[in-house]
């Protein structure tokens, strides 16, 4: 339902962030993330930065698999 694009924030001004994904740039709204800073990686959807990204998927997968039994609560 919600195509997300991981991208890097390069500029921020008045609730608008410029994001860069592999060289493709676009202005998006940053109103959903209070403490955004240039250099942060965000998930972008429909012209909005919806969340910060705090790591890569492979490292996360390692953590999930290592903690498999504990995660299931």
């Amino acid at each position: 339902m919600c195509v997300g694009l991981p991208a890097k924030v390069t500029e921020l001004k008045d609730g608008v962030a410029v994001i860069n994904a592999g060289g493709a740039e676009r202005e998006v709204s940053s109103e959903m993330i209070a403490d955004l800073a240039p250099g942060d990686y965000v998930m972008v959807h429909a012209g909005m930065a919806i969340a910060k990204i705090t790591g890569d998927d492979e490292a996360q997968a390692e953590d999930v698999m290592d903690g498999l039994e504990d995660l299931l609560s």
């Binding site: 997300g4 999930v64 995660l71 299931l72 609560s73």
Partner: peptide, 25 residues
């Protein structure tokens, strides 16, 4: 794949479960 693996293990445990396999976002 990791989310599906969690589900398989969860179902095997036999109790209702929840896990977040996407904590980086």
């Amino acid at each position: 794949l990791t989310a599906l693996a969690l589900i398989v293990r969860g179902v095997q445990k036999g109790e209702p479960f929840f896990a977040n396999a996407y904590p980086r976002v």
